[in-house]
């Protein structure tokens, strides 16, 4: 028990790093991913093709390989990133692709009758988007998006492999010092769980409420 109390401040520091990584990844990915996702649905052909290729490429490769590529691979072509930057860049690249897909799915699952109806009452492109499609898309976007937050927090544990002292690596270091493995891992699992479980529940609630 004392071991938990002694190591808790250190583990909380790690948890903070985990949340920092996950938080910045999600923020940047939203800023990049939502407009890109809209462009994938409404944009012209020459915008759609590269976005489609990007999303498919990034989602076809394991996150771990992306991380290694950005951190160990890019320095070979004179792009030297610190481990933290590399981690955020790699995870953001993946998250952006995911958000592009979620955005596309949100718009495309709206029945075409909605667009037709909006056109028939004389709404222009902008009004059609803002008044009819966007409000419906948000409801379809939120549940999978919040679910993907859980994936981001989980995926951020991989940054420990680049030597960033997140919650995962803090646990490893505590175990290295104390040689108490199982209880410390379980405590770490509980800490991840306490972040992710509420998000999972929220995602499911929203899904139940929004799906009709």
């Amino acid at each position: 028990m004392t071991i938990f109390l002694q190591t808790l401040p250190f583990l909380l520091d790690g948890l903070l790093t985990t949340l920092l990584v996950a938080g910045s990844v999600v923020l940047i990915a939203i800023v990049l991913g939502i407009p890109a996702g809209c462009a994938l649905v409404f944009g012209p052909f020459w915008v759609k093709v590269p976005l489609r290729l990007y999303a498919d490429f990034v989602r076809g490769v394991p996150i771990l390989v992306l991380l290694y590529f950005v951190y160990y691979g890019l320095p070979a072509v004179q792009v030297n990133l610190s481990s933290m930057t590399a981690a955020v860049v790699a995870l953001t690249a993946f998250k952006t692709a995911q958000i592009i897909e979620i955005t596309r799915g949100a718009f495309q699952s709206i029945p075409t009758g909605q667009t037709d109806a909006a056109k028939s009452i004389g709404l222009g492109l902008m009004d059609r988007f803002l008044q009819v499609l966007a409000p419906q898309a948000v409801r379809r976007f939120l549940p999978p998006f919040i679910n993907s937050l859980v994936d981001t927090v989980k995926g951020s544990s991989l940054v420990s492999l680049l030597g960033i002292v997140d919650l995962m690596l803090s646990l490893q270091q505590v175990i290295g010092r104390t040689h108490v493995a199982l209880p410390v891992y379980l405590m770490g699992a509980l800490m991840y769980f306490s972040i992710n479980f509420p998000l999972s529940v929220l995602s499911r609630r929203l899904e139940k409420r929004f799906i009709y």
Binding site: K154, S156, S157, M168, Q172, Y185, A189, Y192, N196, F197
Partner: peptide
Amino acid sequence: VEFVRNVPLLLLVYLIFYGIPSA
């Protein structure tokens, strides 16, 4: 289901590879 889905896979991998044999 909830435990496994809300914990990173990497942690589960370590938990089973290093954690369980230690106890």
